[in-house]
Design a binder for these strands. Sequence first.
DNA 1: GAGCATACCTACTCGTGCGTAAGGTTACGC
DNA 2: GCGTAACCTTACGCACGAGTAGGTATGCTC
Lengths: 216, 216
Amino acid sequence: MLARVSTPPTFKRLPRAVREQQMLDAAVKVFSRRGFHAASMDEIAEDAGISKPMVYAYLGTKEELFVACLHREGTRMMQAIAGAAAPDLPADERLWRGLRAFFGFVGAHRDGWAVLYRQARGEQPFAGELAAMRTRLVDVVAGMLDHALRAEGREVGETELEVVAYALVGATESLADWLADHPDADPEKTATRMMNVAWLGAGQLLRGTTWRPPAS
Amino acid sequence: MLARVSTPPTFKRLPRAVREQQMLDAAVKVFSRRGFHAASMDEIAEDAGISKPMVYAYLGTKEELFVACLHREGTRMMQAIAGAAAPDLPADERLWRGLRAFFGFVGAHRDGWAVLYRQARGEQPFAGELAAMRTRLVDVVAGMLDHALRAEGREVGETELEVVAYALVGATESLADWLADHPDADPEKTATRMMNVAWLGAGQLLRGTTWRPPAS
DNA sequence: GAGCATACCTACTCGTGCGTAAGGTTACGC
DNA sequence: GCGTAACCTTACGCACGAGTAGGTATGCTC
């Protein structure tokens, strides 16, 4: 009450949709800085310029809030990538565009997405959420490889394909981390480097060249 | 006291070194099942067949305990890999042996190491610990690539090298996760697959072949 | 300008789990 | 056979943070 006197005009009453976005912004920021567990609802509320019960009223429990963050950021990323992927282009062109979009997105949301991603990997409750996104990505990549293979009349076992896709996605994530940790690095250039590793490696595989273990 | 009567011979007094290993075993098990935060010291103590204050007396706080786990498992892994790396072999042979040792290790410690690794990525307090191990790995790989490059009279910028190494390490970790999630998958085969992607891709790069972005 | 819904707050409860104090028991040296 | 040191216990203090109860202000509708 006493404090109220000094801040009468500060409290703007805002519509729900706006406040929800502010809360999500704050949540992403705090979660990414502190990690899921170390982040407190109080801090998120304070950072959003609002009180804690409002967060509960709008976004639910802490876990639900985190999932909401994951969804918003994940959806944004998927859209950014999907927007760049014209399905009737040659495989390397599609891969290139996808990678460029992906690294562009990570570069623009450094502490946003990459760190949420890191977070969600460990925490049991969200392993599922994240695994789903990852699986979608792997499937997309595997599909692309498969498509390119069939176009050349070749074919490869399903597991084989999945594993290669897994490796590529892993390499890409790893470079995304690297990018997030190097604020002055160029996303475009990073995408090119990834493309080099991925395409030369995968390209060889597509052409039927394989490496065989020595007889040891 | 009453309970004591029914269990007089149960309590073996064991030397510190033995108990410490038992505690670490239990800690690795519980941390990997529950995750760092969800794991409770009580459960770890119970699983080790000992009471909580003993854990504190020997291994210190929860964070210190986790770091101790990380160190033990990390050291074991590094040794497994180092033991397989004769420095005077050709680069692809060395890479192959390293990968085989690595996947062999992960295969043998599925819920041990791979999951701790996943854990440590997110949690702020351990980002440093893990980053150090990762950096060592990246340096080893980068050194190998550099060595192979110079042998062919070629040379590449330092960042370039680091990034490629980063991508390879990321892809390898990703496959390690895949392996940990597929209990009946063959580590040897997984290593071969990784070798395919890595070596064909890196091999091309070594030979000077590079992919260039289209003029868009 | 009464009524009603929505935005928003302060100030609590309560569980959980880290870390510890204080004391009991076994082995071993002398 | 007795001290002493290491081993091991039960039982607690205490902080922190998720989630809530209950109340106040604001604006919109008729």
